[in-house]
Amino acid sequence: MKLITHNMLSSKTIKGVVYGYPLIIRASQVLTKDVDFNPEFIQRMIPKLDWSALKFAAKCVGHEEDLPDEPPANMADEDVLKRIHHVVMEVDVVDGFLECPETKRQFPITNGIPNMLLNENDV
């Protein structure tokens, strides 16, 4: 699971959960996988990101320092774009779990795939 995917994930389909966002990442294995850097792709992505959720995710996996506190105002700064690219596209949570911030229900991440299936207690 890349951090970009975490940016959209929510546990709000659990009964009683209001936001279920952002999910807490409790990683036991985090890898960095090379992904080609495409500045335009990142420029287009930034306005769509929930920046505070991204900062939170980066903090969960120990990459907080790689990100500026605010979305960059200068989209032409390739160095900043590269750092964002790294955190959002290359940092990959391979093993661990995601946790609903409201119910603490845990969702395992195995081989990079978050298991968000609910059981009857959740619906």
Binding site: S10, K12, T13, P114, M116, L117, L118, V123
Partner: peptide
């Protein structure tokens, strides 16, 4: 899903009746 993930795609295991995504995210 393991096959899709193995091909390098970003995937999530879930039921289509309870998509684990925020409203208006795509």
């Amino acid at each position: 899903l393991s096959i899709a993930q193995g091909r390098g795609h970003e995937t999530v295991l879930c039921n289509c009746l309870a998509l684990p995504f925020r409203d208006a995210s795509y």
